[in-house]
Amino acid sequence: MEPKALPGPASERMSKQRSRDTGPERLIRSALHRRGLRYFVHRRPLPEVRREADVVFPRLRVAIFVDGCFWHGCPEHGTKPRRNAEYWETKIARNRARDADTDARLEAAGWTPVRIWEHEEPDEAAAHIEQLIRTRARYLANPKHADI
């Protein structure tokens, strides 16, 4: 039997957390846009899989996920609630397993998934993404001579 969330102030706070267009997502999107990159927001890279990426470059087959430290179990900043700990451990473990499954499905379909933690510096994350995007674009333009 799976543990259930308990009602209370913490549960109420958690239910109000945004699941899209979070602050870290918007900062990374702004940094990407300033670098001249254009993308889609909150799209399913694989239509048959009910999971959305936060930023998608469909032509280049790159899907960006901005993962929250709490919700995705960041090894540096993830916290473990004391109240209803079993529920939250199970929930975060399921999230991590789903993330791994999503990455595996994307890779099997020829996509490159990129995971960014919410605590990462947006300009550094955008620089990493830009380098990947420009490399993939060069490869698609001339697959014989690109060094990917």
Rank of each mutant, 00 (worst) to 15 (best):
W117D: 08
L140G: 11
V41S: 07
A85Y: 03
R83M: 07
I28L: 15
A126C: 10
D67F: 01
E107K: 15
M14Y: 06
W111G: 12
T90D: 13
I148N: 11
A5I: 11
H128M: 12
A137Y: 09
R50W: 07
P81M: 01
S30I: 00
D101I: 00
A137K: 09
M1D: 13
C69P: 09
G68S: 08
L37M: 12
E25M: 03
R44T: 04
G68E: 07
A5F: 00
G23R: 15
R35I: 00
H77I: 03
D123V: 03
A137W: 12
A100C: 00
R94C: 03
Q131G: 15
R105W: 06
E12Q: 14
V41W: 05
N142T: 07
E130K: 12
S11G: 15
E86W: 00
I92A: 07
P81K: 07
G73M: 05
G8S: 07
P75K: 07
L140N: 11
P9F: 01
I64L: 14
N95F: 02
P113V: 01
I133L: 10
P113G: 05
L46Y: 03
D101G: 14
Q17I: 08
P122K: 10
R29T: 01
T79C: 06
R34Q: 10
G8N: 10
E86R: 14
A93C: 01
Q17K: 15
R136C: 00
A97N: 04
F40D: 13
P3C: 00
G8R: 12
R96L: 12
E25P: 04
M14T: 06
L60S: 11
R136E: 08
G110Q: 04
L60T: 10
R18T: 05
Q17V: 13
P122S: 09
P24M: 02
R26I: 10
V41L: 13
R96H: 06
P122C: 09
R13V: 03
D123Y: 01
A146K: 07
D123T: 11
R138F: 01
E118T: 03
R115W: 02
P24R: 04
